[in-house]
Amino acid sequence: MNIFRLVGDLSHLLAIFVLLLKIWKSRSCAGVSGKSQILFALVFITRYLDLFTNFISVYNSLMKVIFIASTVATVYLMYIKFKATYDSNHDTFRIEFLVVPVGGLAFLVNHDFTPLEILWTFSIYLESVAILPQLFMISKTGEAETITSHYLFALGSYRALYLLNWIYRYYFEGYFDLIAVVAGCVQTILYCDFFYLYITKVMWGKKLSLPA
C-alpha cells in the first residue's frame, strides 16, 4: 500500500458516498445517469467475486463489500425509491454498445482463460468506459449540478491516482499489470475534458455548463 493507492481508494469511496448522499438528501437523482450506476454495479460484482475464494486483508475485503453495497444502494435509490425523479429521457446511452464489445474483448485479451479471470478482465475493461453514459447525459443537457461535478472529479481522480500507484509499484516492487494499466489510461483520458471544465469553472464557484 502506497500513498497514491490509499488516496485513490479514499477518493473512490468519497465519490460513491457524495453521490449517495446527494440523492438521499435531495430525494432526487436528477442529472445522474442510472445506466452508469448499473455499469458500476456490474463492475464491482464481477470483479469482487474473489471475496469468496481469496482473502487478502481486512481492508481489502471491507472495501470490496462497501463498494458493492453502496453501488447497489445507489441503483436501488435511482430505479425504485426515487424512480419518479430519474431523468430517463436524457439517459439514452445504449449500454449494450459497451457491454457486448467489452465482454468480447475480455474473452480475447486476458491473463488467464478461467471464469474468474475473464470476469475480472471484463470488469476492468467495463470500468474504463462505464462513465460514458454519465458524460453523454451531461453533454445532452449541457450542464451538471455542482455536487455531481464533485462526484465526477473524485471518481476520475481515483483512477488517475492509481496510475501514479502503478508507476510507483513498477519501480519499487516490479509490479506491472498491462491490462489494468491500459484500461486505467483509457479511463483517465475519458475524464480529461471534464477535468478541464472542473478546474476552470467549478473550482472558481461557477456551475459546470457546456458552451452551446
Partner: peptide, 10 residues
C-alpha cells in the same frame, strides 16, 4: 500477467 490470487488492488 498476474493470476487471480495475486490481486490485492481494488
Amino acid at each position: 500477467g498476474l493470476k487471480t490470487k495475486d490481486k490485492d488492488e481494488l
